[in-house]
Nucleic acid binder design. Structure first.
Lengths: 138, 138
DNA sequence: TAAGATTAGGGAAAACCTAACTAAAGAAAC
DNA sequence: GTTTCTTTAGTTAGGTTTTCCCTAATCTTA
């Protein structure tokens, strides 16, 4: 078997492992049929930190009613909640629940899980060797 | 910086590289806004090899008109074409065009491109070392 | 007459919109 | 200092378009 194919195989296994981890996170949350778009909106909310309806409408280039509708749906899924500002009670902040955060960070957490497996399968010098090799690429 | 974080970083870079390759394949095909579902149908057609409308309806648990509609759309995108069977002229085979095949194999090809980069950045003994390390995981 | 695919026509849900509303805040007039 | 006007944030109501699926009827070949 050629080096090329063996490399392909080991990397593919790594990707498959990561993918299984993210699927598990979705199913643990009971949200296996979320769309790519929905996940990316949760990511945007997460990245922005303090975000209001108007601001999210601006960022995502949607109208405000579209955002209201979307947030209502996320609320029904227990991914977000509304929090009124004390400074100016017209403002509503969109906050992620624990579940919402989990989904927003699904890629990150799945990769973390794979890294944990690596750490438990390789000793420290092997880990350093692997880091060194992967750093050389490109 | 901790080993954990350095590992995370190098693997994340690898994933990002692969992702950029698949995005490039989509945009080269002029099909940047394909849905996950559409790609998975093209994959199914590819995997089946010789597949008729009725058979695809069966596999995907859709009605035959739904398949006709879907294939018409794919035809407009230049991803598939119809080929009538010579044995029994009632049968129509769904065939992938070069573009259709490219999309069906997008994940595979993107990974191949990343592997090529690895091969050009690492010498043979380093490649073997990397394979050995990744094989040890789990 | 039967089987494979298509056409016609339609239903339900998703993903968006505009216009009109409510509630709160800020400013201006008295 | 209260009342009134204006502006801003978000919601509600109602509609359009697109997607994704369906059944029933039709055409073509066996």
């Amino acid at each position: 078997m050629e080096r090329r194919d063996r490399l392909f195989e080991v990397i593919e296994n790594l990707l498959r492992a990561k993918n299984e981890c993210s699927c598990k996170i979705f199913s643990d949350c009971g949200l296996s049929d979320m769309t790519v778009k929905q996940v990316s909106y949760l990511k945007t909310i997460d990245e922005q930190g303090e975000v209001t309806f108007s601001r999210l409408a601006e960022i995502t280039r949607n109208s405000k009613p579209t955002i209201t509708e979307m947030i209502n749906k996320f609320e029904r899924m227990n991914c977000v909640y509304r929090e009124r500002s004390n400074d100016d009670r017209r403002f509503l902040y969109i906050r992620l629940t624990a579940k919402g955060k989990k989904i927003a960070k699904v890629e990150h957490d799945a990769l973390r899980q794979v890294i944990e497996r690596m750490i438990s399968s390789l000793d420290e010098s092997e880990q350093d060797l692997l880091i060194g090799l992967l750093k050389k690429i490109r």
